[in-house]
Simulated scan of single mutants.
Amino acid sequence: MNPLLQAERAVLGGVLLDPGQLDRLSWLTPDDFYRPAHRALFAAMRKLQADQHPAFAADGWEVPLTWVTDTVAEAGRNIRGLTTSYAHTLIAACPRPGNAPVYGRMVLEGAIHRTVTQHTIRLHQAARADALQGEVEGALHQADVLADVLADLARRWGTEPRPTASATTPPPVPTPGPAGARAPIGADQVADEEFLLCVLVNQPGAVDEVVDWLRPADFANHGHGQLYRCLGALHHRGEPIDQLTALWEAQRRGLLTDGTLTSERLQQICGGLGAGSAEYLGERVMRSSIARTAAISARAIGELADNQSLAPGRLINHALHALGPLDEVRARWQSLTAPPIPEPAPDPPARTKRADAALARSQPRPPTLFSPAFPASTWTPTARPPLRSHS
């Protein structure tokens, strides 16, 4: 029998024999069980525990006989076909009730592999949908969900999530062959890449629009990426970029010798007019790169999850490492599409002493007694008291 199913039967049988073991399984949830009947039974045990079933007040091995029948009856509210005889089969499958937490760890380990597989499938489906629609939001959202799930699984397993490279699993981005593409790509992607390279070669200064955020790995076709690397090298050295200098740089890098490019192929790519926006075409190439990288990362993580001999802690850390290339592409995409930060308003100029003096002179003075507000005819002097004599 499958060890995972045997562990599920053992942990349920252990709790049926000793309901107190449920307190030692607080970290285990019904969704961690693979079989629906097992999920329903474990959820029923949790429900009866919350309702303070008499079995949890029993001392030692004095478990009421109604514990088994009540558990089966409660589970039968959510699933059909459960019988008391099946519950006794689970009891017989438990080697030792005191080892229920160990059996529960086995169940949780299987649940971690299944959960990673499920979210990996969703990431791959979102990446394929984005590739067809020319979008990136679906793949990036599913990648965030997968990263959050991995962090939560690491917490439940009791480990610290750390991206760690796997020594046995190939890197997420496969190494292309000497004359091939990284993966089968559509005609639209090929056209976008060729159109962008033609613009970069024939428009002076067009490389400046994309060189800060577009990388050779963003090109689906290996030859296109290597040609873009040649253009980047010419731009870095401050040399002119045209068809001849691009051909010369490709020859210096051995691309014409190993079959990555040919002079005819380079002439075909760069021989057009090169009319278009390099930034717009670069964004299209990068959108395809995000969807493609997400799909490759999903396949790599799926292979890790299928390896049942891989411990949950290592699986989580290797899966986080497999998401690294997608995080790198996402960071460049966000730097490209992020709205510009508004410049802060300039501070008001500080007032000088001359300005303060001018403002002081412009302020109205208080009215005097002989001002028009107080005519002289209405003013009468106040009589002073007589001076005292000092004699």
Rank of each mutant, 00 (worst) to 15 (best):
R35C: 07
K353T: 15
T84Q: 13
Q203V: 15
Q251W: 03
P386Q: 02
P184D: 05
S335M: 08
A319M: 08
R156F: 01
V190T: 05
L227I: 12
V211W: 07
E62S: 14
I290W: 01
A355T: 07
D130E: 03
A246W: 02
E109H: 08
A151N: 10
L65E: 14
D51F: 00
R292Q: 10
L41M: 14
T120I: 13
T66R: 07
D347G: 13
W67N: 01
A298Y: 02
A331D: 14
I241M: 07
L261W: 01
T84G: 12
I301F: 09
G158W: 02
S288K: 01
A300Q: 10
G313Y: 01
R24H: 13
V285S: 02
L108T: 03
A319Y: 01
Y34C: 12
M1E: 04
R287Q: 15
Y228Q: 05
D327V: 05
Q203P: 12
T257R: 10
L16I: 08
R105Y: 07
P171Q: 11
P386G: 05
H53K: 02
P19Q: 00
P348D: 11
Q133M: 09
D218R: 07
Q189V: 14
Y280K: 12
P172E: 03
A87V: 09
E264W: 10
L197R: 06
L4R: 05
P348M: 08
A183S: 09
I341Q: 14
V63W: 01
T169K: 02
A10F: 01
H113Q: 14
R384Y: 00
E209D: 15
Y228A: 09
Q363D: 13
R156W: 01
L304A: 09
L12H: 00
T120C: 13
A350L: 13
V15W: 00
A129P: 03
L323C: 07
A376K: 10
P364G: 01
L320N: 01
A111N: 07
V173L: 13
Q49D: 08
H53M: 04
P344F: 06
A111I: 04
P97M: 04
H224Q: 12
N307P: 15
R365P: 12
D59T: 05
L266A: 01
F42G: 06
A373F: 05
D327W: 13
I91P: 13
S389A: 14
A376Q: 10
P375A: 00
